[in-house]
Simulated assay, not measured.
Amino acid sequence: MARARAKDAEGPTTQATLALDRAGVTFTRHPYDHDPSAPSFGLEAAEALGLDPATVFKTLLVDTGRGLAVGIVPVGGELDLKAVAAALGVKSVLMADPAAAERSTGYVVGGISPVGQKRPLPTVLDETAYAHETVYVSGGRRGFDLGLSPTDLASVTRAVRAPIGRPRR
Rank of each mutant, 00 (worst) to 15 (best):
D21N: 12
A129K: 14
S155K: 14
S155V: 08
L153H: 11
V124T: 09
L148P: 11
A48V: 14
I112F: 09
D97R: 15
G65F: 01
A101L: 06
H30A: 11
H132E: 09
A159Q: 05
D145R: 02
A46F: 10
L121E: 06
G76N: 13
G89H: 13
A100S: 12
E44G: 07
A129F: 02
V62F: 02
H34G: 11
G111Q: 10
S37N: 14
Y136D: 03
D63R: 06
A162P: 04
A159M: 08
H34S: 08
G165Q: 09
P74H: 12
T28N: 15
V73A: 06
G76P: 00
G116E: 07
Y32I: 11
L68T: 03
K7V: 13
L61A: 00
V108I: 06
T13C: 03
V70P: 00
R103D: 10
R22G: 07
P36W: 04
S92C: 04
S138V: 04
T55A: 12
A6V: 06
F27A: 10
A131G: 14
E102M: 10
F57G: 01
A16I: 01
G24S: 11
L51A: 13
A6H: 11
A48E: 14
Y136A: 00
G42W: 13
F41W: 08
L43K: 14
S149V: 04
V84K: 07
F144H: 10
T128A: 07
A129Y: 03
A159P: 06
P167S: 00
G165K: 07
R3N: 12
E127I: 07
T26S: 13
D21V: 11
A69G: 01
P167N: 00
L125I: 06
Y136I: 05
A4I: 00
A69C: 02
L43Q: 14
H34A: 15
D80S: 10
G50Q: 07
P74V: 08
G77S: 05
R166P: 11
R166S: 01
P39Q: 14
R29V: 03
V93H: 08
M95E: 09
L61F: 01
P114L: 05
P150H: 04
V84Y: 02
A162W: 02
A6P: 10
F57E: 04
K118W: 08
L20R: 04
F144A: 05
G65A: 00
Y107A: 00
A159L: 07
L18M: 10
D35K: 13
G89L: 06
G111C: 05
G77Q: 04
L61N: 01
A83E: 09
Q117I: 01
S37G: 10
P163F: 01
A83G: 12
V56C: 01
A48N: 12
I164L: 03
A23L: 05
E44F: 06
Q15G: 09
F27V: 03
G110D: 08
P114S: 02
I112W: 11
